[in-house]
Amino acid sequence: MKGFWVLLRRELAMAWGRGGGPIVAVAFYACVATLLPLAAGASPARLAAVAPGSAWLALALASLLSLERLFERDYEDGALDQLALGPVPLEIVSATKCLAQWISTGLPLALFTPLAATALGADIKLAPLTLACAVLGGLGFAFVGGIGAALSLGSRRGGVLIAVIVLPLFAPPVIFGGGAIEALATGLNWTPGFGLLGAYSLAAMALGPFAMAAACRNALS
């Protein structure tokens, strides 16, 4: 347990340290959300219709940003060797890194999501569910993204590779979350979509660490 806290504090300090990962991710998110009306046309009715879905998609894209550094940095400088020889197994190390990724990048992005959706013209009453979906879905994005980050260890152009590995896996949460928000907007039952999104994130948290640890061991050997 002590090892977990030691590692979590380090990961958070590194995320918030120089380079300001979370701020860059939120800025990227803001740029995508601002570009969207330019591409979709300025008609408020049309924008309002796609606003929640676009805010949600932009969240998925912004979640990719800092994944490249999640394992790669520690792999390049040898810190991953030491993490592998620590008090907890690599599975817990991987889960802790993803949790820190969620806290440092996922949560700020999630807070920004209802703001962006509302700014694009989505009904304000959708904001609570949009926030809830972004918080829950962000957890899934972090853990599934971690798998992509671990699998691409040691490859050149890791960032692009991560996107290619991970974006198809982001399809279910994008469908579930977007579906739940859409359902609420049209007055239908939103709970199934939200429930499935929760199931996806929990499954990612439960199974992801094993895949990440295996990929790290493979990269270290």
């Binding site: 300090a13 590194m14 340290g17 380079g19 400088d77 040898g78 810190a79 991953l80 060797d81 030491q82």
Partner: peptide
């Protein structure tokens, strides 16, 4: 070993 795992910006 040669790779000391130290982060240069910390």
């Amino acid at each position: 070993g040669h790779q000391d795992g130290l982060k240069s910006n910390r």
